[in-house]
Amino acid sequence: MLIITRISRVLSNFQNLVALFAGACIIVSLIGILSLPLAFEENQLYPKTRLDPTSGLYPYDRGGVPFGTTEVICQYPENSPYAGYVTTYLTPLSLFLAENTLYIGTTIVAHPGGIIDEILYNTRGADTVVETSILFTAFAIASYLYRREEE
């Protein structure tokens, strides 16, 4: 049997699909490991130097004054003039919690005015929309298949 026929026999069986893809991932990852170390670019959206484990807002505390402004590095500052303001967007209740307890960092996404959501909406708008769309699509498939079981 020709070597080509053998290869195509392996490729044409979709049971081998995951193995093939995993193999490709391993090869590319090996190339990646060989090309280490990669330089890290410090100049990003949030300054990484100000992380303060003692802050009530840890790990979301990126500096800045609540109800004031803070510096956020934007790709297109002219398109998002208010980007800096939202890093410190906290409701008065959240501000109180942040100043008096250590727990606001763990609940921050789950309550109204959570910092992360606000930052995302304001600086990287389409991300949040598409992320929820992915979840919604996945739920739609699951619920359709579940309801079809009942028919």
Binding site: S133, T137, Y144, L145
Partner: peptide, 20 residues
């Protein structure tokens, strides 16, 4: 990052098309 998100949405929707 948006591109990767859209691409993964494409992947999931593709499964949905044939899952029915």
């Amino acid at each position: 990052f948006n591109f990767t998100l859209f691409v993964s949405l494409v992947g999931i929707a593709n499964i949905g098309i044939v899952a029915a």
